[in-house]
């Protein structure tokens, strides 16, 4: 059995202003797995992801890479678990692409040469090595998305968490992203609605609705279960319907 990377037991969370966003979540994620979290709008997907590197913390027990998620472990956890936000304008906050991609490594106290090397490698991995000195605000949306991924790749994480990576991308940019994600060997957790993308890269799916996990298992089995999908405002992907 592969190593357990993330272990969530009995996670509840309510936003200070709102109702319960997560109810009794139990989830184990193993090394090298690609887990997809799907669910209708407002199901709590983004909220769940924010727990995985300790940005939010409910009253629960989460272990990440054998570390308890708590204040003193956060720096170690955050250098291993990379979270990419949904909106690239939130993810890219530095004036130039270089500074953005270097932000994580510099905070990890690596030396200059190492930082430069990591930045170069990360940008090459997403095919944007020419953008090194450009300003983030002059990039196209797809380019911003790719650089967002580079900003965490440069930290050499063990777990990659993406929130809706394919939203607003045109078909070509989307395909490029899929190819990119397929190539990465690390543990991936991806939230979003793009079901075709799941089929291509994810072997396991968890369905979240109303803050609770309602199904968890093999991708094809879950996605082709019509009644389950429709019950939770989702649909069976076209490519599975046609078979």
């Amino acid at each position: 059995m592969a190593k357990k990377v993330i272990e969530i037991k009995g996670l509840n969370y309510s936003y200070p202003a709102g109702a319960e966003a997560l109810k009794n979540i139990n989830l184990d994620i193993y090394e090298g797995e690609s887990l997809r979290i799907i669910g209708p709008n407002g199901a709590g997907k983004s909220t769940l992801l924010l727990h995985l590197n300790g940005i939010l913390s409910g009253n629960s027990h989460i272990r990440v890479l054998d570390l308890e998620v708590e204040e003193r472990n956060l720096p170690r956890i955050r250098s291993k678990v990379a979270l990419v936000f949904q909106d690239p304008d939130d993810q890219l906050f530095m004036p130039t692409v270089f500074d953005d991609v270097a932000f994580g490594p510099v905070n990890m106290d690596l030396d200059k040469e190492k930082v430069r090397h990591l930045v170069k490698k990360a940008l090459e991995a997403v095919g944007m090595q020419d953008a090194l000195n450009r300003s983030s605000h002059h990039l196209s949306f797809g380019e911003k998305k790719r650089i967002s991924i580079a900003t965490v790749l440069s930290m050499e994480p063990e777990v990659l968490i993406l929130d809706e990576p394919s939203s607003n991308l045109d078909p070509k940019a989307r395909q490029h992203l899929i190819d990119l994600l397929k190539r990465f060997r690390l543990t991936k957790i991806i939230a979003g609605h793009d079901l075709e993308l799941i089929l291509e890269i994810c072997d396991r799916v968890a369905v979240l609705d109303g803050g609770a996990i309602v199904a968890d298992g093999d991708t094809k089995a879950i996605l082709s279960n019509k009644s389950l999908m429709e019950l939770h405002n989702l649909e069976v992907p076209l490519s599975l319907k046609l078979k």
Binding site: R78, F85, D87, D90, Q91, D99, F103, G104, V152
Partner: peptide, 18 residues
């Protein structure tokens, strides 16, 4: 949200650049 994104990448109160 930007602050959260910064925290996720190890921000600790000081922006450092190369």
């Amino acid at each position: 949200r930007v602050y959260l994104a910064m925290c996720s990448r190890g921000f600790s109160g000081q922006i450092r650049t190369l």
